[in-house]
């Protein structure tokens, strides 16, 4: 590893200095995922049926739409942090690593934006008939 000199940092050697923040955020989002996915599983389990009418009314409630949006944020944030480590550990070609990290960011931000927009639009504007 680099000796921590300025030129070593420029060459990409040594740590970026964001390790503990990454580590703590991964744990925070893990706790968020734990609570929110258990909420989702329980909430789905107790629905009387799974017709469109039932799930559409269920999803439009603030008490469902809000935790659903939080779930999307927490999970995609956790995916971003987790798959980043996955890529950094197993992809050693610098070019491929960079490309995959960019792709990962596009995926999680795009996925979260799509999901949040979908839930918000449904809750605010209702379902087309």
């Amino acid at each position: 590893m680099g000796s921590g000199t300025n030129i070593g940092k420029v060459r990409g050697l040594g740590s970026a200095g964001h390790g503990s923040e990454h580590w703590i955020n991964q744990r925070i989002s893990a706790l968020g995922n734990l609570l929110l996915t258990l909420w989702l599983a329980a909430s789905l389990f107790w629905l009387p049926d799974y017709t469109h009418k039932t799930v559409a009314e269920w999803l439009a409630q603030p008490s469902v739409a809000v935790p659903m949006i939080l779930l999307l944020v927490s999970v995609f944030w956790h995916v971003r942090l987790g798959l980043q480590v996955f890529i950094e550990d197993y992809v050693h070609n610098e070019g491929n690593k960079l490309a995959l990290l960019v792709l990962l960011n596009f995926y999680v931000i795009g996925g979260a934006a799509f999901g949040i927009f979908t839930v918000a639009k449904h809750a605010f504007a209702g379902t087309p008939v």
Partner: peptide, 12 residues
């Protein structure tokens, strides 16, 4: 999950 959510918002 995203497909399911968007299919609910997309209507019957």
């Amino acid at each position: 999950l995203l497909w399911w959510l968007s299919s609910i918002g997309g209507g019957e």
